[in-house]
Amino acid sequence: MATTPFTIEKTYKAPVKKVWEAITDKDKMKVWYFDLAEFKAEVGFEFSFTGGPPDGKQYLHICEVTEVIKEKKLTHSWRYDGEPGISYVTWELFDQGNSTLVRLTHANLESFNSGNPDLAPENFAAGWTSIVGKNLKEFVEGK
């Protein structure tokens, strides 16, 4: 049974180019997102990182870039080593002059229906709300 993807939209007082660099440059990403050993905004590029609840199990995230439209759209798969399911994260950027509207969509979360409470949809909502609503905003707006 398909569920509605999680979507969050935020507008930042920063140009598209700056936001694009924040979501595609591994050195910038480690400041506000996850510390990736390597990242390239190229279809087929595979990357991984470890993350999880601050006081809980850490999971190896395994991802592959599936779509890139420079300064407009970036999509990658998102799955966990040793866990069933695969989901897709899409970042869309909309130029609004001196600001950028960012729409993040995390789809196919229901595929993680393994009974693992760490992978419950509400945890993704909380995580993305913090990452997109606070961390990325502060990074691109320089706060």
Rank of each mutant, 00 (worst) to 15 (best):
82 G>F: 05
91 W>T: 07
57 K>G: 01
137 K>G: 04
86 I>E: 14
49 F>Q: 02
109 L>G: 06
132 V>L: 15
69 I>S: 12
64 E>V: 08
52 G>F: 07
85 G>M: 09
33 Y>Q: 05
37 A>C: 00
80 Y>P: 00
79 R>Y: 05
50 T>W: 14
101 L>F: 01
78 W>I: 04
104 L>Q: 08
66 T>M: 10
56 G>V: 06
66 T>L: 10
3 T>L: 08
131 I>M: 12
64 E>D: 00
113 N>A: 15
27 D>G: 03
17 K>P: 02
54 P>I: 09
131 I>W: 03
81 D>Y: 11
51 G>R: 01
101 L>V: 02
98 N>Q: 12
54 P>Q: 10
10 K>N: 13
82 G>N: 13
107 A>F: 03
125 A>V: 12
93 L>P: 09
67 E>Q: 14
56 G>I: 04
43 V>R: 13
124 F>P: 10
92 E>A: 13
33 Y>N: 14
125 A>L: 06
28 K>Y: 00
136 L>F: 09
36 L>Q: 07
14 A>Y: 07
111 S>M: 09
49 F>C: 13
27 D>H: 09
128 W>H: 04
81 D>N: 12
99 S>L: 00
84 P>D: 12
93 L>C: 08
68 V>L: 08
119 L>P: 04
124 F>E: 10
40 K>E: 15
102 V>E: 04
28 K>W: 00
143 K>E: 10
81 D>H: 14
2 A>W: 00
94 F>T: 15
69 I>L: 12
